[in-house]
Each structure stands twice: as structure tokens, then as C-alpha cells.
Design a protein around this nucleic acid. Structure first.
Lengths: 351, 351
DNA sequence: TTGTACGCGTTATCAC
DNA sequence: GTGATAACGCGTACAA
């Protein structure tokens, strides 16, 4: 077969340098010593010919792609940028490539994974993008995976990185109760598949119980962890016969935006009539009016950590299976707290 | 050489289906008709063996990666998420993979491009990540590139997608002058390498001139298109002997955040003492206090469009070299305009 | 419609 | 240190 090959190959380099391809390969990969003289000749020829090793050929021969992947639900959320930023930093530091794709087994269920052993050496998977079966399959072929914002199925032992949800929520709700005297606190939960939501619910329930407040299922709504879902859920709640309430834990910061809107439309003031608190400390939370009291989650660090663990896995180092990054409460105005300088949104009170 | 090969190959499929590898390949790629009966047999065997074509081998044989790349300065900006979201949608629709990398020729100058002909079929490049030399090199090897938020060097004819900066800025500044009577307007420009900044400056200058206001270089500061740069620049300005001013065009929305902070610290009220306007209409701009008057840039659409053009290029269709997406002014409170319902941040006045 | 055989560019094994 | 060459898995020209 005669194919036109515009590109210069290792063979060309070998010929011009008057050595064998094996020697050139050894020089390139530093996989065996090469005489000083030959090394210089090869180096020069590579420059002259502007030789670039062919990635695919290399992959075929070595069975390594030097690429890792990230699978995530969607990229609309404010969450995504800091997460990806943390991941990318580690990936490029390791001279690897990063493939990203949106995927959700619930909506893409019949489509194969866009990222996997066929095109990467390892995978970062956010929350519940992959189901247990898919994870099991990947584990079976010993494909390195690190989970983000979810724990691993117990039988699998795949490492995961997530943030402390329960204790922070407990503190947040306790603050509402103890400092601001709130006792009827709505919880806008996220999707039930998402672990964060379940942990936050647990923290919420624990705080209530600890303070002798009985859990009222009528105060639990589904906010879907986004502004539109939260708005809709709260609107409906307000429109029907509902129990009285004096605070809202919106589930996350994006949902808080919808909460603000619904409350305003109902003529309720924040925080005078209703305290509002969120979770994440997204970039915009400081700028909401009033500034949002929330929990600061180290999202960029989550990305960094997960990626680092993935590279440990790739180098077959032992890794921590469970990484729980700590969170802290950020008190702003929306819970009822006051600033010394109310005009200054950058000045947070962190606990 | 004997290599262990745990994976099942096209040869295995061929053997089990009692056909040749060529037939299997033809069936997989629909590159030539295959008899019904054989097709079913192959299909079944592929399922049984759980056969997955080896991507690298395929790439080596076809010289195509089925992957496109995105190169961008950094991922910290609010800009990034909608842009990437738009790109990813088109990429996955085309069954392609997406490689992302941060790169800037100014800081990475000696490093080779992380993304290029060696690992992708085409490239999206944001603003001035690549310099003219790099672009020229890519063009020489006929590598498909689409530029985002910058125009192409005239001799190159590489397609680009950007937004209308000048006319929108002109309208914005004119609005400040005509409606709010502002005449001493600070312009916080971005990096000079970035074209957006230069176009916005042009719109700013034109508006002044059109309204008989002479350009005052002392009112032009460098805000770097981010909150910290803007804050610092404005702080310095306020600290020194400076001409009076009654409005600030912050260059972009992120910079407006720094402007708000600096003005507050100086005891200046927005918009009573100083009108502030931005550019981009980032997600958080509605929620600033007061809500920010700005220019809405269709960032997600920019991403979509650029990616679509790249795929047109890949399919060797003719493409529009120059795509300029239209922008519109969003009047909120920070310029001095008033809402009918001031409590409602979702309700924008768009022109 | 199907099969044979070679080439894609590299790495790695073996012999020297 | 170095060279020859067999894999790696797939696509495809050519023959049948």
C-alpha cells in the first residue's frame, strides 16, 4: 500500500542521523544511554526536520494515552469553573492532557461512556454521573477512577474526594436556631441521587433534633440545587396552605437565588421576616442582596485533590480511599447577622 | 516480540464470526455493504466479546483523532463556563471528544502547544493565547483553527467568532451622557493585547467625540478585566490628584466588582455620585448592589458558533471567515436608571 | 460481497 | 551502545 505521508517519522530522523530507529527512540525516551556524539546528531536532525513523535503510534505501542478525563453532569453551574480549574492545574503539571465531557447515566443511559479506557488512562467522575454498574465495569478492568462529591460503593474501594456536608449544615442550622431564634426552617433539598443533598439533610435533621425541634416533612421541598427549581418549589409552597416558617436553608447557593426572588415576590424581607442560608459559597454569593450566609466549600481544592489522587493511582502509589475536605461557615447578612461595615461585601465572618 | 494483550481485537471478532477482519471493519465503519446474515453474526460476536475498537490504532490508520481542542488563558473567569458549555454541546453532538488546556504564549512561551495537530483534528483558540507565529505555523500545515474573541491576522484567513464591542460600548457611553448627563467618564481598559479592550476603547472614544467631549487620558486606567486589577487601579487613582469624574466604564463586569468596592471605600454612592457600567452581563451582574448596567454578550452562543464553524472546517465546507455576534445593552440601576419594581433583579431593560 | 496483505509510526525485544 | 525487526490494532487497496 502506498500512502502519502507528509509527516516526518522517526525513520527519517534515523536515516539522516545515520543511526537506527531504535537508537532514536532510546534517545527520545531516555530509555537507554546513547553516546554523546550520537545524541547530539539526533538532536540536531530532529530540530532540522522539525520532527514530532506521532502520538497515536506511541499510544498504540505503549498502551498509554497520557490523557485523563473528567465526566460531569453539565457545565452551567458555578461549581464547574473552580472545579475544572483545580483539576487542570494538576493535569498540566503532570504533562497530561485533559478530556472533558458532559454525561449523565440517567439521561444518556443507552449511550456508551464518552470517556473511558479507550481514550484515557484514568477518569474523574463527578457526583452520580456514572451508576454503580458502570463503576463496577471500570473497576473490573482495573481502570483508575476517582470520584468527586460522592462516596464509593462499599464493595468497590475506588477513592473519592468530597466535602464535609453534614457537620457544616449542622452548624449552619444551629446558628439559625441559637443566634437568630429560628425554629421553622424550610429545607430545599437537591436531587435525591446526589449524596451532598442526603448529607445536608442529615445535618439539618440532627440540628433540629439536638435543639428539640421535631422534623416537619411539610417544610422539606425539592429545590434541585438550582435557582429555577428552587424558585418554582418555593412559589408552589407559598401558594398553597402551608405551615408558618421563619428561615430557609436553600440547599445550595444557586438555589438561594431562586429563594430570594420568590420571597421578594411574596413581599417577605430577608432577613427580617425570613432568614436564608445556602451552601457552596459561590462567587456571586457575596454580592447577593443581602449577602448570603452560607458554607464555604473548597471546590478548587476538591478538583486539585481528586486529580492528584488520580495521578497517584496512575503511578501505582497507594492512595487515601476517602478524602473529606473541611468546610466552614460564612456569616453574612441573610441569616440576620450584621456587619460592622454593612457596605463592604468582601468582609466575611468565617467560622 | 511477544506482548501480552489483554484486550479483544478486531481479529478475535473476525475469527469468532468466521469472517475476515476486513469484513468486520467494513461492518463497523459502514464503509461498504455487508450481507445481512454476516452483519448479524458480527454484531452478536462483538457484544459477546465486549469488543471495543482501539482508538489509537484507529487514529494511526486513519490519521484522524475525532478530537478537537480548546486553548484558553485560564479558567477562573466567569466567562469560561458559558463558553465551554456552548462548545461542549456542539462537540458532543458531533460525536467528537474535547480536549481543554490553559495556555498563554506570553507566560508559556518556550513550551510547545499542549494541543495541536499531534493530538486533535482542530483547535479553538481564545483571544490572544496563541501569537501570530503559532497561528501561522498551524495554517501552514493546514490545521483547522477557529479564533474566539479575536480577529485573524489579515494574511491568514482563519475564521473567527467574536462579539460586537464597539457599537455596544458606543451606545452604553452615549446612554451615560445623554440620559444621565455624565461627562467625565473613566474607562478601565483591559490588557492591550486583548482585542476586546481595544474595540471598547474605540467605542468609548467615538461616543465622547460624538458628544463633543474631549478625550482625557487621565481618565483611562488599566483594570485588567478583573476585579482585583480594577480595584487596585481605581484605588490608586482616587489616592492621587485626579480630575473629577461622574461615571466609570469598568471594561467588563468582573472589573465592576472591584470598582464597586473601591467606590464604597471612598464613600461614593452608585449611581447617585458615580454611574458604573460594565460589559459581558456575567451571571452575577444582576445581583450586584445596585444591579449593574452592562452589555449582554452571548458567550454561550459564541462557543457554539465557533465550534460549529470548526466542524464545518473539518468537513471541508466553506465557512464564514468573520462572525460578529450582536450584543445588547442591559439597563439596570448602576447607571442611574430606575426600575418599575426595584426589588426584582430578574427584570432587565434590554435595548 | 468477501478475503489477503500491507502500511500507519512507534516501542521493545533480542542479538551483537 | 547499537541495529534489526516483530509487535501494537486497525483501515483499505487490490484481487477474487
Amino acid at each position: 500500500m502506498t500512502r502519502k505521508s507528509s509527516s516526518v517519522t522517526i525513520r527519517d530522523v534515523a536515516r539522516h542521523a545515520a543511526v537506527s530507529v531504535a537508537t532514536v527512540s532510546r534517545f527520545i525516551n531516555r530509555t537507554a544511554p546513547v553516546s554523546q556524539e550520537v545524541a547530539e546528531r539526533i538532536q540536531q536532525v530532529m530540530l532540522d526536520l522539525n520532527y514530532k513523535p506521532h502520538v497515536a503510534a506511541r499510544q498504540l505501542a505503549t498502551r498509554r494515552t497520557l490523557t485523563v478525563g473528567l465526566v460531569i453532569h453539565n457545565m452551567h453551574t458555578d461549581f464547574f469553573a473552580p472545579l475544572l480549574s483545580g483539576i487542570e492545574a494538576v493535569v498540566s503539571e503532570n504533562q497530561y492532557n485533559l478530556l472533558v465531557a458532559t454525561y449523565d447515566y440517567k439521561t444518556h443511559h443507552h449511550r456508551p461512556l464518552p470517556i473511558g479506557p479507550h481514550n484515557t488512562d484514568g477518569l474523574l467522575s463527578y457526583a452520580d454521573c456514572l451508576n454503580e454498574e458502570q463503576l463496577t465495569d471500570l473497576c473490573r478492568v482495573k481502570f483508575p477512577v476517582v470520584l468527586i462529591h460522592r462516596t464509593a460503593p462499599p464493595q468497590l474501594r475506588v477513592p473519592f474526594v468530597t466535602v464535609e456536608n453534614k457537620a457544616a449544615t449542622y452548624k449552619l442550622i444551629s446558628h439559625l436556631i441559637e443566634t437568630h431564634g429560628r425554629r421553622s426552617i424550610i429545607f430545599l433539598r437537591g436531587p435525591h441521587e446526589q449524596e451532598d443533598s442526603r448529607w445536608r439533610e442529615q445535618g439539618y435533621r440532627d440540628a433540629l433534633e439536638e435543639h428539640g425541634i421535631s422534623f416537619n416533612p411539610d417544610l422539606m421541598l425539592c429545590g434541585e440545587f438550582n435557582r429555577h427549581g428552587a424558585y418554582t418549589a418555593l412559589k408552589k409552597f407559598l401558594a398553597r396552605r402551608h405551615p408558618p416558617f421563619d428561615a430557609i436553608f436553600s440547599g445550595d447557593d444557586d438555589a438561594a437565588i431562586g429563594v430570594y426572588k420568590a420571597l421578594r415576590e411574596a413581599g417577605l424581607r430577608i432577613p427580617e421576616d425570613v432568614s436564608v442560608v445556602g451552601f457552596d459559597d459561590a462567587r456571586l454569593s457575596t454580592f447577593l442582596n443581602p449577602p448570603l450566609t452560607t458554607v464555604r466549600a473548597p471546590t478548587q481544592l476538591v478538583g486539585q485533590t481528586a486529580a492528584s489522587i488520580l495521578f497517584d493511582l496512575l503511578q501505582e502509589r497507594t492512595v487515601e480511599t476517602c478524602t473529606l475536605l473541611s468546610t466552614e461557615i460564612v456569616l453574612r447578612r441573610s441569616c440576620g447577622c450584621t456587619y460592622e461595615n454593612p457596605g463592604e461585601p468582601f468582609q466575611d465572618v468565617v467560622r
